[in-house]
């Protein structure tokens, strides 16, 4: 499979830049298409290295109240899978390097048609997929078609993914591994930094892929602490909450909506500390495959 923008980005960050990635999540269409498209366009300059674009679903079982509400706002504004793909297509007209990962649940993809979805997503400029409710046991559904269609399939590893199960989770994962730092739903508890480090180390012993950590990250300090050992830090609910608090009483966007999210991303990106030059700095290739 050809290298995706995700592969290129992590290679650059690990090599020349020597720092972890900031992975940002926003929901496509929250609170409306135009606002979230404006936000999407502004994210890279604010410090987002990878963008997870949420595809709204009525029943986001693995998400907490913040992202549930965000999904419902997006659906209410008329967001659909087709419009999400169109948003990525527009984004690619001006940004050809920032990786975009579509994140969502399987049913809208299943109804769109998995093969057609992979084809249209790739053509739109999507780099990877996270489909929360499709475990390795159901790989034939969308994981294998995605890989065949040139997309990374990024899987979640969790505190309940033990050593026995980890190989199955890693088997068809590409792009990066998303380590869910708590057993729970998005945006609720704060992760225990030490326990998370042990888990990241455990995963890294079994894969050369970058490992990004998410769930419950909301401050630059957390970004810095987790970024000290993980290849990337994912921030989702905190950004979605920033959208929510910026809205007017009818749930509509205000002039401060994009600005409040972007300033939070800028703030969080301050936690992306350049690592002390590693011994292997002059051999970036080795670092990448280590």
């Amino acid at each position: 499979m050809a290298r995706t923008r995700i592969d290129e980005t992590f290679a650059r960050l690990k090599g020349a830049d020597g720092r972890p990635a900031l992975v940002t999540f926003i929901t496509a269409g929250d609170p409306d298409y135009e606002t979230s498209y404006g936000l999407l366009q502004a994210l890279p300059a604010a410090g987002a290295d990878v963008i997870e674009l949420g595809m709204p679903f009525t029943d986001p079982m693995a998400d907490g109240p913040s992202i549930q509400a965000s999904s419902l706002r997006a659906l209410k504004s008329g967001m659909t899978v087709r419009k999400t793909l169109a948003m990525v297509r527009s984004f690619r007209e001006t940004d050809t390097t920032t990786p975009i990962v579509l994140m969502g649940y399987y049913n809208p993809i299943y109804i769109y048609g998995p093969d057609a979805f992979v084809r249209d997503a790739f053509a739109a400029g999507v780099d990877g997929l996270i489909v929360v409710d499709v475990p390795p046991e159901e790989d034939a559904e969308i994981c294998l078609p995605a890989i065949e269609g040139g997309l990374n399939f990024i899987r979640l590893a969790t505190p309940t993914t033990d050593d026995k199960r980890l190989p199955a989770v890693l088997a068809n994962t590409s792009g990066f591994v998303y380590y869910v730092s708590i057993a729970g739903i998005t945006g609720t508890r704060a992760p225990d930094v030490t326990a998370v480090k042990d888990s990241v180390d455990r995963i890294k012993r079994q894969t050369a892929l970058p490992v990004c950590v998410g769930f419950g990250v909301k401050s630059a300090e957390q970004v810095e602490a987790i970024g000290a050992y993980a290849d990337g830090v994912v921030v989702g609910s905190a950004l979605v909450n920033a959208v929510a608090t910026s809205l007017d009483k009818d749930g509509g966007a205000t002039p401060s909506t994009v600005e409040s999210v972007i300033s939070l991303v800028s703030l969080l990106s301050k936690g992306l500390v350049r690592r002390p030059a590693p011994m292997t700095a002059e051999h970036p290739d080795q670092t990448v495959s280590a």
Partner: peptide, 8 residues
């Protein structure tokens, strides 16, 4: 069709 946390 469940999240990885529940799979084990």
């Amino acid at each position: 069709f469940v999240a990885e946390t529940l799979m084990p």
